[in-house]
């Protein structure tokens, strides 16, 4: 069993780092999505303040929900 523990210790940080980076990338994309959405609203003639208010209504799926999605 000691071999198994060594593998856990060796692999876990790599997995955590990979998942963290993917998640950060996901968050960045989601923010970009909101920005494009807000800019499109303004370009289409919605007032700046209202566009900001509407963009804040966009729901971003968080990590817990992402993990649920994978089940």
């Amino acid at each position: 069993m000691s071999k198994g523990i060594i593998y856990i210790l060796a692999d876990t940080p790599a997995i955590l780092i990979t998942i963290t980076f993917s998640y950060l990338k996901y968050k960045r994309k989601a923010k970009k999505y909101m920005k494009i959405f807000r800019k499109t609203l303004i370009r289409e003639g919605v007032e700046r303040k209202m566009a900001k208010k509407l963009a804040s209504e966009i729901k971003i799926v968080n990590l817990r929900e992402l993990i649920n999605m994978m089940h």
Binding site: S22, K25, Y26, A30, I36, T40, V61, M69
Partner: peptide, 21 residues
């Protein structure tokens, strides 16, 4: 990471944001 990437590409693409906007 592949699943996260897939979700991101499917939901949060720039084209989707513009269309929805």
């Amino acid at each position: 990471p592949e699943i996260i990437k897939g979700i991101v590409d499917a939901i949060y693409s720039g084209t989707n944001a513009e269309e929805f906007g």
